[in-house]
């Protein structure tokens, strides 16, 4: 068992009434598996990801429950403890590749940043070697050239690959992909999904894939959690969910996938 989330509750207090965005969430992740979380906007899937990644440290927010990563409680851990894991054991890739890279730093510098933090024993030539390798791993051509470029010189798909490279450079056990394909066009989406699949196969990285695109989730994930309004409404293997959806909501999500049908004239 790599990750276990028990009775996770997240509440916001920044308005007059407290808002519960995640309600009593339970989930388990085995090593090497790819789990999908699907749901519409505001269903709490990103919040869950943030909680696991340890980004929910705000004063106007209350979190209850526990998140166990290899048995270690992370939800209420100290920042220093958390930082041992962040980027090293748990990494995250965000939705928007245009803003997730620092515009004034070179790509290579940004890819190496996790190494600089978590492997201070490596010297700069070793860091360079690993960064180039990581860039090659995400199927970027001419990694030596890209290493020296600035983010504005790359396309959206390339940036997302760079993000994955920098998330993977410390070879984390868990990669959280928070709608990594939403801002990309359809052909690139598929490439990214295939890339994640390959990384999972070759490096045995466990992936938590968050999306509202069920067709991608179906290609990638072995198990799926369906969320609505902060509640898990359905969970099961991909087969089960697609063939025998129990909930009306799941059925609606599945029906929302565009189908190749002859238009009725």
């Amino acid at each position: 068992m790599l990750l276990e989330v028990n009775n996770l509750n997240i509440e916001f207090y920044d308005h007059d009434l407290p808002e519960r965005v995640v309600n009593d969430l339970n989930m388990k992740l085995d090593e090497g598996e790819i789990l999908g979380i699907v749901g519409e906007s505001g269903s709490g899937k990103s919040m869950t990801a943030m909680a696991i990644a340890g980004l929910l440290k705000r004063h106007d927010m209350k979190t209850e429950g526990e998140i166990l990563f290899e048995g270690e409680e992370l939800l209420h851990a100290k920042r220093d403890t958390l930082r041992q894991y962040q980027g090293n054991e748990i990494s995250i890739v965000f939705q928007e590749p245009m803003t997730s890279l620092n515009p004034v730093k070179r790509i290579g510098w940004q890819v190496e940043e996790s190494l600089r933090i978590h492997r201070p024993d490596l010297d700069s030539s070793e860091r360079y070697r690993r960064a180039i390798e990581a860039l090659r791993d995400v199927e970027l051509d001419q990694p030596e050239l890209i290493y020296k470029k600035y983010p504005h010189e790359l396309s959206g798909g390339m940036r997302q690959r760079v993000m994955i490279a920098s998330a993977m450079i410390c070879e984390p056990k868990l990669l959280i992909a928070d709608e990594p394909t939403t801002a990309l066009d359809v052909t690139i989406q598929l490439q990214i999904v295939k890339l994640l699949q390959r990384l999972n196969r070759e490096k045995h990285t466990t992936i938590l894939f968050i999306s509202h695109d069920l067709s991608l989730v179906r290609r990638l994930c072995s198990r799926i959690i369906v969320m609505q309004n902060g509640i898990v409404v359905e969970t099961g293997t991909t087969e089960d969910i697609f063939h025998n959806p129990v909930q009306e909501y799941t059925r609606m999500l599945i029906n929302a996938i565009p189908k190749l049908e002859k238009p009725v004239i």
Binding site: Q84, Q86, F94, T99, Q110
Partner: peptide, 22 residues
């Protein structure tokens, strides 16, 4: 609140380093 600052946090970068380097 920019995403790249969030990513830096998630890479375990210390706050001082985020402020002055990122």
């Amino acid at each position: 609140e920019m995403d790249y600052v969030k990513s830096a946090r998630l890479a375990g970068v210390s706050q001082i380093r985020i402020i002055f380097v990122h």
